[in-house]
Design a protein around this nucleic acid. Structure first.
Length: 857
RNA sequence: GGGCGAUUGGCGCAGUUGGUAGCGCGCUUCCUUCACACGGAAGAGGUCGUGGGUUCAAGUCCCGCAUCGCCCACCA
């Protein structure tokens, strides 16, 4: 126990108690206890691993606090809480940061250099141009990543500790560690073995800057300016022209057909015939397909390989040839498609070759104008174009060989299973499930998991080479599981030697890496010791809780559920808690790019962690919260509450509690009975992930406790000659004890501080309160409270101090209220300083007559 | 185009199975230093976005509409 300070304050509590909790191991996962209780006695959390190289955002504080509230509640209820922390240091943000910070870039073809030292440290985002970056091996790059992110992670940990997250800091993982790579590769190899992973050569959404394929989940639409270009195609029989409209005339050389709706009267006669393209004079068929919309443009469209996703569908379903003209760098390929036969056609193409899409469009328009085949260019209008969410230029579609993971898009049974399992999860709030189901039902293809990047988890396979030294994609060579983690560009498959790498009859490494979600989708496995610590895994999995943001339901939540379904045919967690995001006072989502981000460290320092925790706790899950750094109202209220709790605790503890104290007084029993209901409500609320409601009922009671009850009984609690002293002191002490435990999840520092003044051990390891079941009538407390208000009003209206003595007061009230007050009449007279108190029946509670005592000088 | 959510006093929000509108901030007035000035008491302030419907009774249920936000969509 610690001594009660003369003037309790919040300052310094974070440092004091974080150190104490660390020293005591207050939040460590107790393996022995878990073993004894089994899975049912454990509460496990699949903590979101923050991007270590990113900056902390007030939104992190918000959502991580939500998780902590539940963790603390479950811990106090007796659960052994497994609350790990992960660091997401695998992925594009880290890759970019390492490149800039050290002036290097990853080149997997290079050998590892054990003595490598980076040219410099601490570069900013602008100092490092790609051309200036020193190429280094993948392993060297990963080492630098670890070096840098370890520092970043320390800062995160410091802030999370200051915030008071009850994380077990000995349970951490990193998404780029060897162990993570092993788990990620192992999970994939098991997918491969079960036929859930496969490779395919197909049109792929491609980012020309990152030079990598992109998955459906990473897409976002952006508005772009475009114009319709009306082009004249020429009927092959010479009977005239057909006009189409396109926004992408630069793809004209990739045109493989025209298409119109089968029901479109205008084009019935053309179906089955052919036309010749303008400029390139290539013969293409006119076909019918229901996706063609008669009301769009001229109702007939050109199909190119590939202008947009619809082109892929038409190309596949109409069995058209592939006439690709855009390369992986987004430029027009040097060689014209073979079908361009005329000299004029090849000359026109030569003018476009090597140009970017943008420049090629400009030039092809000029050429078409010269040939008279461009009839009209519409005014620019805005339309949505697909982008990689982290990219800068529109995606192109190119044919590439990629690895895919089945996700239910082409498998009815799997999709149904995913929906069914999704419904087994408790969603908080429930409507978030709809987003998951919409996404799952709207999937257009399997999950593309390979990326043509360098930094990340290598796809752990090799290909056999044929006698010509070409890859035989049918001969996939997998590593021995004991060999994991592997980097196929360095490691050699069993049964081969290094000198067989790249030679005919030998092997060749897959150079691609996995999509970062392919690893992040395994966070339960990573944190829970899957295939590493079977006992741990069986104690924590499936997890109890997945907390996360609503923006990554389609990525993180979906993919985690998918992996768990494929591996174990079960949900990875029983509940998903979805936090809203933080909006600024103008209701805009806060984000770095908008420049309205507030750093949480300053907020914590300024207002205190409990105040910030209170702010987070007062928002419900799934609800966006406004945050105005200029006027953080809710935070100030939280601060006031925490201070009030300290002061009230100090006051309550000043009343001695006799050894043999009993609750004998009606009002005391009434207060404790009221508190019982608060305990029931708060408990039910936390059980349902409604921390805001739990806080609200607790806080509401606490203010009544301070303003009314404490005022009513303090005279009695002081006076050791009063027969009711022991009852009041015991009731006050009991209520304080309960209230601190109810408040512990929210204002964790103040609750712990006050608890330490009269209790041994941490409040956070104390038991969650249960109703005391003391015989008492809550109506007594509320009736006396009502009476107290009218007595105070009488004094306020007389502009008198509340301490003004009252010579005589007649209180009117309904009979039931008078009866309820009777047992606490003495306390009412004491707090009101009423010499002569009488009652009379009335419909409403009010002062009928009052006679204030003359003020003493 | 489809879906989800929001719309309650100046601001931020509660309103659980339908039964005469609540909380905090702010505001007004007053009190006070014997737990708390990072304090206390009292008070003013709302036809619950809109139009219908069900019901004895609707902020609460049903239908339409509007505004805002988010997600999704095959956007030639």
């Amino acid at each position: 126990m610690t001594t009660i300070p003369d003037k309790p304050a919040l300052e310094g509590l974070e440092r004091t108690w974080d150190a104490a909790w660390a020293a005591e191991g207050t939040y460590l996962f107790d393996r022995d206890a878990a073993r004894a209780s089994g899975r049912a006695g454990v509460f496990s959390i699949d903590t979101p691993p923050p991007t270590a190289s990113g900056s902390l955002h007030i939104g992190h504080v918000f959502s991580f606090t939500h998780t902590d509230l539940k963790a603390r509640f479950e811990r106090m209820r007796g659960k052994t809480v497994f609350y790990p922390m992960g660091w997401d240091d695998n992925g594009l943000p880290t890759e970019r940061r390492v490149q800039n910070y050290y002036g290097v870039r990853c080149d997997p073809s290079l050998p590892y250099d054990a003595d490598f030292t980076p040219p410099f440290e601490g570069g900013d985002n602008k100092s490092s141009r790609a051309a200036d970056q020193i190429p280094i091996s993948r392993r060297n790059f990963i080492e630098l990543c670890e070096r840098l992110t370890v520092e970043d992670e320390k800062q995160f940990e410091e802030l999370f500790r200051k915030l008071g997250l009850s994380v077990d800091w000995s349970q951490t993982y990193r998404t780029i560690s060897d162990d993570t790579i092993r788990v990620s590769q192992l999970a994939f190899l098991r997918n491969l073995e079960r036929g859930e992973a496969y490779q395919s050569l197909a049109p792929t959404l491609w980012d020309i800057d990152f030079r990598s394929a992109i998955a459906q989940a990473e897409l976002e639409d952006r508005e772009q300016q475009a114009s319709y270009h009306r082009l004249a195609f020429h009927k092959s029989d010479g009977s005239g022209d057909v006009h189409i409209e396109t926004t992408r005339p630069e793809l004209l050389a990739a045109c493989v057909a025209l298409v119109a709706n089968p029901g479109d009267e205008r084009y019935q006669s053309l179906f089955g015939s052919t036309v010749r393209t303008p400029l390139f004079d290539v013969e293409v068929p006119v076909l019918a397909h229901p996706l063609a919309q008669p009301d769009k443009g001229s109702g007939i469209a050109m199909i190119c390989t590939f202008g947009d996703v619809t082109d892929i569908i038409w190309w596949r379903e109409l069995d058209l040839p592939n006439r690709t003209i855009i390369g992986h760098d987004g430029r027009i390929l040097p060689d014209a498609p073979d079908v361009l036969e005329t000299e004029a056609a090849r000359a026109a193409y030569a003018e476009l070759a090597g140009k970017t899409v943008f420049s090629a469009k400009k030039r092809v328009v000029e050429l078409l104008q010269e040939s008279g085949e461009l009839l009209e260019v519409s005014k620019p209008f805005s339309h949505a174009v697909k982008f990689f969410e982290k990219g800068d230029r529109p995606l192109e579609i190119v044919s590439t060989r990629q690895w895919y993971l089945r996700n239910g898009a082409r498998d009815e049974e799997l999709r149904e299973r995913l929906i069914t399992l999704g419904r087994e999860i408790g969603w908080h709030p429930d409507f978030m499930r709809v987003r998951y189901e919409n996404w799952t039902n709207g999937l257009t293809g399997d999950w593309l998991v390979s990326r043509q990047r360098f930094f990340g988890v290598p796809i752990p396979i090799w290909y056999g080479l044929d006698e010509n030294g070409d890859r035989d994609y049918a001969r996939v060579i997998v590593p021995d599981l004991g060999q994991l983690p592997v980097d196929p560009t360095i490691d050699v498959p069993a049964g081969y030697d290094e000198d067989q790498r790249g030679v005919p009859g030998g092997f060749d490494a897959e150079r691609d890496i996995f999509d970062t979600w392919a690893t992040s989708s395994l966070t339960p496995q990573l944190a829970g010791g899957w295939q590493r610590d079977d006992e741990l895994w069986n104690l924590v999995a499936p997890f109890d809780l997945r907390p996360q943001g609503q923006d990554i339901i389609r990525t993180w939540l979906f993919s985690t559920l998918l992996r768990s379904t494929l591996e174990d045919d079960r949900t990875p967690w029983s509940d998903a808690a979805i936090s809203g995001f933080i909006v600024d006072p103008d209701r805009k989502k806060m984000s770095k790019s908008k420049g309205n981000v507030v750093t949480p460290a300053a907020i914590l320092d300024q207002h205190g962690s409990d105040a910030v925790r209170y702010w987070a706790a007062s928002s419900r899950l799934g609800t966006d919260a406004a945050f105005d750094p200029q006027n953080p109202t809710q935070i100030k209220i939280g601060r006031r509450l925490a201070i009030k709790v300290l002061n009230a605790a100090k006051f309550v503890l000043s009343f001695p509690v006799p050894e043999d104290a009993q609750i004998t007084h009606t009002l005391d029993a009434a207060m404790l009975a009221t508190l019982d209901q608060v305990v029931r409500d708060a408990t039910a609320a936390y059980e349902q992930y409604d921390h805001a409601r739990a806080l609200e009922v607790t806080e509401s009671f606490f203010w009544t406790f301070c303003d009314d009850y404490l005022e009513l009984v303090k005279e009695r609690a002081y006076d050791q000659s009063d027969v009711g002293q022991a009852s009041a002191a015991l009731a006050l002490r009991t209520a304080l004890d309960t209230l601190l435990r109810l408040f512990a999840p929210v204002i964790s520092f103040a609750a712990e501080e006050a608890w330490s003044w009269f209790q041994e051990g941490s409040v956070h390891r104390a038991s969650w309160p249960t109703p005391l079941e003391i015989e008492g009538d809550p109506a007594v407390l509320s009736a006396v409270g009502e009476a107290l208000i009218v007595v105070r009003r009488a004094k306020t209206e007389a502009k008198a101090s509340q301490k003004t003595p009252v010579a005589r007061l007649v209180l009117g009230a309904p009979a039931a209220t008078i009866a309820a007050i009777a047992g606490a009449e003495g306390d009412l007279r004491a707090v009101g300083r009423i010499a002569d108190l009488t009652f009379t029946e009335s419909d409403t509670v009010g002062v009928v007559e009052v006679e204030l005592a003359p003020q003493e000088a």
